[in-house]
């Protein structure tokens, strides 16, 4: 690694410090000095370094390196978010684009060619997924509207007020009948039927044996059947 500061102090001739993957991501050229004999040198920009780092991670991922892949995917997320926002994707859909892009990277990882820029490869995929997301959003907006009040006030066509009233009345009668049961029978109904507990759970909760609960459960059913049938 060359110390960049040294270049500013001397008329060193350096053609290329970094060259990640050939011409597709060639470093930015910078004029170091205007002194006679000075030359234009290729100073690596931060973008080139980032691209080289991502390309190296991707190559490792192609070979099956999970740690490199995880690092790469995490590193890609802010970039994809920027691309999505740049394409005009609303902020609440940006994460959808991020996830679609990450899935595409995963499925298309064999197509990445290390001689080309990784960032350019990623940008094209992210842009495409953002456009897909915008189109999908446009289609949804064309078919659907957001009106929560209209939804809440919409009458249920299958609803029968009389039936609903009957059910409410029926529940009241049932609750009243259960309330009139002897304590042990009422406990059995409440734990086994209303709370949906198993015999063991009900036994633990009530402190009674499972046999006692079973007997009281059957007695309660018999009592309720007789009482409700009579009414």
């Amino acid at each position: 690694m060359t110390d960049i500061s040294l270049l500013y102090e001397s008329n060193v001739t350096i053609r290329s410090l970094y060259r990640f993957g050939g011409g597709a991501c060639a470093p930015r050229r910078t004029l170091v000095s205007m002194a006679p004999g000075s030359m234009i040198v290729d100073v690596p920009s931060q973008k080139d370094e980032t691209d080289g780092r991502r390309a190296a991670w991707m190559v490792a991922a192609q070979a099956g390196d999970r740690a490199a892949y995880e690092t790469l995917l995490r590193d890609c997320i802010p970039f994809i978010q920027r691309v999505a926002r740049g394409q005009g994707v609303p902020s609440d859909f940006v994460d959808d684009v991020v996830q679609e892009t990450l899935l595409t990277i995963h499925q298309a990882r064999q197509t990445y060619d290390p001689s080309r820029s990784f960032t350019a490869w990623l940008r094209t995929i992210a842009q495409r997924r953002a456009i897909d997301g915008l189109r999908r959003g446009g289609r949804t907006r064309k078919r659907e509207i957001h009106k929560p009040l209209a939804y809440q006030n919409h009458a249920d066509p299958g609803g029968d007020p009389e039936q609903a009233a009957f059910q409410i009345g029926h529940a009241e009668v049932l609750n009243s009948a259960i309330g009139k049961l002897p304590t042990r029978q009422r406990e059995a109904v409440e734990h086994l039927a209303l709370q949906g507990q198993s015999l063991t759970q009900a036994a633990t909760a009530t402190g009674r044996s499972t046999g006692s609960l079973r007997v009281n459960w059957h007695r309660a059913l018999k009592t309720l059947r007789a009482q409700l049938g009579k009414d």
């Binding site: 099956g64 999970r66 740690a67 995880e70 995490r74 997320i77 991020v98 990450l102 899935l103 995963h106």
Partner: peptide
Amino acid sequence: NEQLVQALSADLTPVDRL
């Protein structure tokens, strides 16, 4: 996104470059 990253990393297998 973090959950997806972890799921994708766990699913990673070596691939033959095209």
